[in-house]
Design a protein around this nucleic acid. Structure first.
Lengths: 153, 153
DNA sequence: AATTATCCTATTGAATCGATAGAATTTGGG
DNA sequence: CCCAAATTCTATCGATTCAATAGGATAATT
């Protein structure tokens, strides 16, 4: 399960990416727009900054802005930064492998074999979907919705 | 992340499936063979029984045995029974859908669109991998290991 | 210097995870 | 019919994580 923290992180980055402006966005503004508890969002943005996704400007007229372009950030990157490895079990994680204690031989462990497939399937989606991709798909969905509305009226 | 509970559940069912005997297996035996805390395993087996995967026989000569055949049990079934829905967010779950509170319109939510793909990718693996499939792949891996050993010697 | 925002530390309440203890109940065998 | 062996039930526990809040320190812009 995605934690709320990761969900808020994705929401915040998508919001900032949609703005694609040079002007920074205030935490308070972001919190209000996306219905995220401000103090919680504060901590999340700080973490995202430490991971290199954002940078910030202090003082009057300050706020947060994207550091990388939306094409360079994948959904997987953000989720890993906030929630940790994607893998359902540590022994199939690429980014944070850990040996399985109870397992006699990893090569012949049925759970590992299956979970490796699951991890790969998840990573295939999340590492090949950038913020820019998501924004594109949202736009398409919004267009489809408009057409639907016209049909009904 | 898969919980230890679910991992133990999978291990237990794989063990019972490998035995494919009519004779029931005692909890204590299963716990020892798979290095699972006995009292914890007790609770897990009970839960698996309630979900219809196992049935049990009390008293002397009793124990647990599979209720369904290994071909009829998918990895997804077991994980859902113990850990709950596969979906990373409730609003893309097939088995336990829940409306997203903070989302204005689900159809145009970028997180939902992406997470739907993730869910489908996971379900595609887990619902199409049966216990029998896993056992087959473990056997293959064991054969490959044997060949490897012969080569070295 | 005043304003505004980020940054830091600490704490909280609730839920979940992993596991244990002890007793109750059922069953088959002698 | 009683005993031993097994499952079944109830309850509790400590530790960790999750989600969020509070309050203030620090830094930078106008």
């Amino acid at each position: 399960m995605l934690t709320k923290k990761a969900k808020y992180a994705l929401t915040a980055i998508l919001n900032l990416a949609r703005k694609h402006e040079d002007a920074p966005t205030r935490i308070s503004e972001l919190a209000q727009e996306e219905n995220i508890p401000q103090k919680f969002l504060e901590a999340i943005l700080l973490e995202l900054k430490k991971h290199g996704f954002l940078h910030s400007k202090k003082g009057k007229g300050g706020g947060y802005m994207l550091r990388k372009s939306p094409e360079e950030i994948s959904m997987g990157d953000i989720i890993r930064a906030i929630d940790g490895p994607l893998a359902p079990v540590p022994c199939v994680s690429q980014s944070a492998y850990q040996k399985c204690s109870e397992c006699k031989d990893e090569r012949t462990c049925g759970i590992r074999i299956t979970m490796k497939d699951v991890r790969d399937a998840m990573a295939d989606v999340l590492d090949n979907t950038t913020i820019a991709d998501v924004l594109r798909r949202v736009e398409e969905a919004e267009k489809a919705k408009q057409i639907e509305l016209v049909k009904i009226s």
